[in-house]
Design a protein around this nucleic acid. Structure first.
Lengths: 141, 141
DNA sequence: CCGCCTGATGCTTAAGATTCTCATTTCTAT
DNA sequence: ATAGAAATGAGAATCTTAAGCATCAGGCGG
């Protein structure tokens, strides 16, 4: 569980790190801001500083345990790295985030990079739209 | 020229607005931060406040004259809206930004959104890589 | 062409997100 | 258990962007 992942990442096993990892693992949305993690920890009675949350997330990112994503807006969101690369589709109204992977797009990206003389290292694709879920507050507008 | 664009956008023609528009039009990189525009204006002897730069850029964005892009990092970059939608490819080393448009990708995006039950409104695709330009400071690493 | 009026500007202050500083606490290896 | 190193918490600091407000300037009526 958490302990293993931390050790594997070469990070000392500490309470804050385990708790943060746990929250990331158990989160419904799987895409959390540092603030959200911080508040959740406070709510569950933990004593933790916001600085620690940011520090730990940055270390997790460096260790490859989480990815930091920059959607629109200023706050970064963090998601647990589960291995498979994927892109994101976000509802403008309810904020729901879904993941997808399309091999056609991946291929075209590699091709385009090559055509432009770039050695591609990474990419970010985000689709923004309105979801048609019945729980979406904006449904039907 | 600038005057026309401003009037067309329903914005009063003022010196700061014209100057900012001019810088955006003449920029080599075509992708500038608010800070960069501000410094360029100061360097060319203009009296302007950073707040004005941000304000004007925000108005330009609302008027559809410029787009605000969120690449990695915290600073937004602004580019003059020249009509055609496009995506971006950025060199991790020299920061060079190139634009591209791929109809295959565009199509797949629409398809994916539909499959996931989203009415797509917008999207952002950025490829990050190392360019092979001989001026790139990192070339050959 | 001149002066008003409204909106625009500049400067300062503020707000939000993230990082840094540093004294104190907690792990890990011994 | 214990020392040494690394991690933490609280608050200050920083960076980016957005107000608040007094002053100034562009566009229209005379």
């Amino acid at each position: 569980m958490e302990t293993q992942n931390l050790k594997k990442a070469g990070l000392k096993v500490t309470l804050p790190r385990m708790k943060i990892l746990q929250i990331l693992e158990e989160s419904e949305t799987r895409h959390l801001t540092a603030e959200a993690i911080y508040r959740e920890l406070l709510d569950s009675g933990e004593e933790i500083g916001l600085a620690t949350v940011y520090r730990v997330l940055t270390q997790f990112e460096a260790a490859g345990l989480v990815s930091r994503l920059h959607f629109e807006g200023n706050q970064a969101v963090f998601e647990l790295e589960r291995g498979g690369h994927h892109d994101h589709i976000i509802c403008n109204q309810c904020g729901r985030v879904e993941e997808f992977l399309d091999e056609t797009i991946e291929q075209r990206q590699r091709q385009i990079a090559k055509e432009h003389g770039y050695q591609i290292k990474d990419h970010a694709l985000v689709l923004y739209g309105d979801c048609l879920d019945e729980d979406c507050p904006h449904r039907g507008d």
